[in-house]
């Protein structure tokens, strides 16, 4: 299977995952969206050198992976391209900030190393939290929740269409590379001479298909302004999920849990 097919398949798998019938998937998208947004804000709000505090925030994604029945390994596999990029953020910090601030097991950590680690951890945790939302909520439901939060319709529509058109682009790219491979047996990849026309064709064909998709939406009452999503009722268990997780996250932010636990053993 080609890399493009793999990417298209990964997207389809993620969507299937979001449509499973688990307790986490059944939680109202609005509750999950608010908790995720709160988590992102709180996780990012830690100061760069408060690594233990940030590590405490890992409780949310790891616990949710465990109790939500989602595979952590699967998440790491799907995020294998994003996570290294996230880890690159702050990689130059150790060169600029060389002031020693901490000694752990005899190893002196400089301010630069600490800020680099905290940026990495923040990045990884926020990506994992976003993944948890996407893996447990179909994209239409996320859009529906955004609409409920009164995010302007045009932005929600943009978000929805980007999600749709990414798969359109991948589909077209996959078809073109398959057609190319069938007429270029034994050749690895695409010859440089064909790159220009392939990319040009890909752009034109995906624009055509995206245009046709848009026409199809218009033919069924869509007017490009206010997307309509069917949202289920907000139940008391959804409220409970929202309240409990919000309380836990605020507590994790206010009290450096790992530090407190550590002090018990010192």
């Amino acid at each position: 299977m080609s890399r493009i097919s793999n990417a298209a398949n990964s997207m389809a798998k993620l969507d299937e995952l979001a449509r499973q019938d688990t307790w986490l998937n059944r939680i109202h998208p609005l509750a999950k969206l608010i908790v995720t947004l709160l988590y992102l804000v709180l996780a990012v709000s830690w100061k760069p050198r408060q690594l233990t505090g940030i590590l405490g925030m890992a409780l949310y994604p790891f616990l949710l992976f465990e109790i939500g029945g989602l595979s952590f390994k699967g998440a790491l596999y799907r995020l294998r391209i994003v996570l290294p990029v996230v880890c690159l953020v702050g990689i130059l910090n150790p060169f600029f900030d060389r002031e020693p601030v901490l000694t752990v097991f005899g190893i002196t950590l400089t301010g630069g190393v600490l800020t680099m680690l905290s940026l990495m951890v923040k990045g990884i945790l926020t990506v994992l939290a976003s993944y948890l939302l996407i893996a447990s909520t179909p994209v239409e439901s996320v859009c529906g929740a955004l609409s409920m939060l009164h995010i302007p319709g045009i932005l929600v529509t943009e978000f929805l269409l980007i999600c749709r058109y990414v798969s359109v682009l991948l589909d077209e790219a996959d078809r073109m590379t398959q057609a190319y491979a069938l007429r270029a047996p034994g050749q690895k990849g695409i010859a440089r001479i064909a790159w220009g026309s392939m990319i040009g064709q890909l752009l034109l064909r995906s624009m055509d298909r995206a245009g046709a998709l848009y026409q199809s939406m218009c033919m069924r009452g869509f007017q490009g302004e206010k997307p309509l999503f069917h949202m289920k009722r907000f139940r008391s268990c959804d409220l409970l999920y929202l309240v409990i997780w919000s309380a836990v996250l605020i507590l994790l932010r206010v009290f450096p849990v790992l530090e407190l636990v550590g002090r018990l053993f010192v």
């Binding site: 179909p138 298909r209 199809s216 069924r220 009452g221 069917h230």
Partner: peptide, 17 residues
């Protein structure tokens, strides 16, 4: 190009909604 929602049911429900 006619179908754009994720499941058949969602797609068929698109217009009535």
């Amino acid at each position: 190009t006619q179908l754009f929602m994720t499941t058949v049911r969602e797609d068929v429900a698109f217009a009535p909604r």
